[in-house]
Amino acid sequence: MVNEEKVKLMNKMALYEEKYGKEDFKIASYYKKDYVSYQTIFTVIWVTIGYVVLFGVFAAAFVETFLSNVGLFAIVLFVLAAVALYLILVVSYGLFASRFYQKKHIRAKGRVKRYIRMLTQLDKFYSKERKKKNE
Rank of each mutant, 00 (worst) to 15 (best):
S29D: 01
G50E: 12
A82S: 15
F100W: 12
I116T: 14
A28Y: 09
E64V: 09
Q121N: 09
Y93V: 07
Y30Q: 00
V76F: 06
E5M: 04
L9K: 02
H105T: 01
K8E: 09
V63P: 04
L95K: 14
Y101I: 02
F42Y: 14
I106L: 01
V76P: 07
L72N: 08
S127L: 11
E17A: 14
G56Q: 10
A61W: 15
M10L: 08
D123H: 13
R107K: 10
T65W: 08
T65H: 07
S37V: 08
V47P: 03
F73N: 15
Y93C: 08
K109E: 02
L85C: 13
D123T: 14
G56Y: 09
K124D: 11
R107A: 05
A14C: 05
S68H: 11
Q121K: 15
K19E: 09
A14F: 11
V70N: 12
S29Q: 02
F42C: 14
F25V: 05
E5K: 12
I116M: 09
K26C: 03
K128S: 03
Y16K: 04
F78A: 01
V7S: 04
Y51L: 03
K109M: 01
K103G: 02
L122M: 12
T43D: 02
I45H: 07
G21K: 01
R99A: 06
K132P: 05
N11F: 11
M118P: 06
K32F: 00
I27L: 01
I41V: 15
Y115S: 01
V90Q: 12
V79C: 13
A61S: 10
V90W: 08
V57D: 09
E18G: 04
F62Q: 10
Y35I: 03
Y16P: 03
Q102T: 12
Y35Q: 01
I116H: 08
G94E: 03
M118Y: 10
S127Y: 15
K133S: 05
D123W: 07
F73S: 10
N11H: 14
V44C: 02
F55H: 12
M118L: 12
V112D: 00
V47F: 04
E18R: 11
R111S: 05
F78S: 02
K8I: 09
Y16M: 03
N3C: 05
G21T: 06
S37P: 08
E18C: 06
I45C: 11
K103L: 02
I45T: 08
D123P: 08
K32C: 00
K6N: 05
L80C: 14
T40F: 01
T43H: 04
N69V: 11
V53P: 10
T43L: 03
D123M: 14
I116E: 15
K19F: 07
S68M: 04
Y86D: 08
Y51Q: 02
T120V: 12
G71V: 10
T43V: 15
Y115G: 01
F73G: 13
K131P: 05
V79W: 08
V112A: 00
K128I: 13
L122R: 03
F58Y: 09
F66A: 00
W46K: 11
S92D: 10
N3M: 03
S92H: 13
V52Q: 06
A108Y: 00
G71M: 07
L72M: 12
K33N: 03
A14I: 15
V47T: 15
K103R: 14
S98T: 13
